[in-house]
């Protein structure tokens, strides 16, 4: 049985600035990283491999340079990495992206039964949290979002039980496999690659699938297949801040003052 983990290469948002004139991201010199939530999905997939011996395939849709991110997945031990890359995939919104990813997963399923698809709960650049559910819907998989613990996996009866992290509560749910999980950071601590694995991975190949492989209708992918587009990006004006109290001379009193201010403005979830 196969575990597929979806990883997106995103600009390192701690360094992203928005060009005030063009309202687009200033990408020059900004390094790319694996979407942080996806690294937790990757870790969980590797744990499935360690525990049940499931093969793990990492897929990513993106430009050719997204290979670097998939290489990192190979370095921690995924069995196969596939980059879904084609000019025709470019400019995709979440719907068009889901179409491509679902098709790739279906194609993998033709060779080996897919049991689990793991995604991060959202990406840090788009923040929509729609692609994972999009895949589940298109492939008719159980949809388990915001997973912070995998309680059990029963491969014999093809069942999975997970805990979902919701606002102010947890929810334990059981669902049949195949299932698509989106995961939160609390799920696990991503592993660090060992050197032997890194060295082995350097000789592995990142496969590239373009639309000749997936054979999707060009109207369902890329810019053409995207009913939504970004009209403007801007940084909201920050309200003027204030310094509350004196933390050095009176840390306790200042903390109290700060809490009162935050609570009175309803800025803290209680």
């Amino acid at each position: 049985m196969l575990t597929v983990v979806c990883i997106k290469q995103v600009p390192d948002t701690t360094q992203v600035q928005i060009d005030p004139v063009t309202n687009t991201l200033v990408r020059e010199g900004i390094p790319f990283i694996a979407n942080p939530y996806d690294t937790h999905a990757l870790e969980e997939a590797l744990r499935m491999k360690d525990k049940f011996g499931m093969r793990v395939v990492a897929i990513s849709m993106g430009p050719p340079n997204a290979e670097a991110t998939l290489r990192k997945a190979l370095a921690v031990g995924v069995d196969e990495a596939i980059l879904l890359s084609d000019r025709a995939f470019g400019g995709a919104d979440t719907l068009a992206t889901s179409n491509v990813l679902s098709a790739a997963i279906k194609k993998l399923h033709e060779i080996e039964e897919v049991g689990l698809v793991l995604c991060g709960k959202q990406t840090i650049d788009g923040d929509t949290a729609q692609v994972g559910p999009g895949i589940a819907t298109r492939n008719r998989y159980s949809q388990l979002t915001l997973v912070d613990r995998v309680e059990s996996v029963d491969l014999l009866h093809k069942k999975i039980r997970v805990r979902r992290k919701l606002e102010g509560r947890h929810e334990v749910v059981e669902a049949p496999l195949p299932a698509m999980l989106t995961v939160v950071r609390e799920l696990n601590r991503p592993r660090y690659p060992t050197v032997p694995l890194r060295l082995e991975s350097e000789e592995l190949e990142v496969k590239v699938w373009n639309n000749e492989v997936l054979k999707l209708d060009v109207n369902s992918i890329g810019l053409k297949g995207s009913p939504t587009w970004v009209s403007r990006i801007f940084s909201p004006q920050r309200e003027k801040g204030e310094i509350v109290g004196d933390g050095l001379s009176d840390p306790k009193g200042t903390s109290r003052l700060l809490l009162e201010k935050l609570l009175s403005k309803d800025l803290l979830p209680v």
Binding site: Q15, P31, P190, Y192, V195
Partner: peptide, 29 residues
Amino acid sequence: QMKARFPEELLNLFENMEGRSNPWGIAPT
């Protein structure tokens, strides 16, 4: 290198060093 086992605080350090060539992960710019 063989076990990837170390105090958890070091994970960030290692990634910051490799990704941004400084211990804090601050933008090289």
